[in-house]
């Protein structure tokens, strides 16, 4: 059951990501990204991380991507033109991507014992509420990074306000 979910939504995520690259209209690309986010949410859920899944949908698919689409709508961006691209991209693109892929898979495979593993659907019982577990970890052992991140976001918001003020 879980393996079927994993296959369907894993494929959907990859297909959405490819479609994001191949589409020439920004809105279609943005919508493909929404598909990727939603498929990732289902994958999180099938691993038993239901809070992460809900946060993924609400924050990324529901807020961030809506703003993307909002901006595309407001700027009325048209279809992009097909260009020949730079020579460096032609020469280094595919070998570079292959090298990164090899490096990542090498690291993941060789460090598998340290990374640990989780069975598909292994924690899919309502016995453990992972909201309380996440909040417990966040507000005890990870309190400092959590607060620092929130200050970082606050600074970013203030910066955006200051930048927008000049234009008004």
């Amino acid at each position: 059951m879980e393996i079927a979910l994993f296959l369907i939504f894993g494929l959907l995520a990859v297909a959405g990501a490819l479609n994001l690259l191949f589409q020439r209209h920004p809105i279609n690309s943005a919508l493909s990204l929404v598909v990727v986010m939603m498929s990732l949410a289902v994958l999180y859920w099938s691993l038993g991380a239901e809070f992460l899944a809900a946060a993924q949908v609400i924050v990324y698919a529901g807020a961030v991507m809506v703003l993307f689409i909002f901006v595309v709508m407001l700027l009325n961006a048209g279809e992009e033109e097909r260009s020949h691209g730079s020579k460096i991209a032609y020469i280094a693109g595919i070998p570079g991507a292959a090298a990164i892929f090899c490096l990542l898979s090498f690291v993941f495979l060789s460090e598998r014992s340290h990374l640990g593993a989780t069975p598909l659907g292994g924690y899919l019982s309502s016995a453990v509420s992972n909201i309380s577990e996440i909040s417990h970890t966040l507000f005890t052992s990870l309190l400092l990074p959590f607060e620092v991140t929130s200050i970082l976001i606050l600074v970013a918001i203030l910066g955006a306000v200051v930048l927008a003020r000049k234009e008004l």
Binding site: L31, V34, E50, F51, A54, A55, V57, I58, A61, G62, A63, V66, I69, S126, S129, I131
Partner: peptide, 18 residues
């Protein structure tokens, strides 16, 4: 009966914006 039922409702509503 989901243990994040309320979040599911919020999430689906936010997708409805599309």
């Amino acid at each position: 009966n989901l243990n994040i039922g309320l979040l599911v409702i919020l999430g689906v509503t936010s997708i409805g914006v599309y």
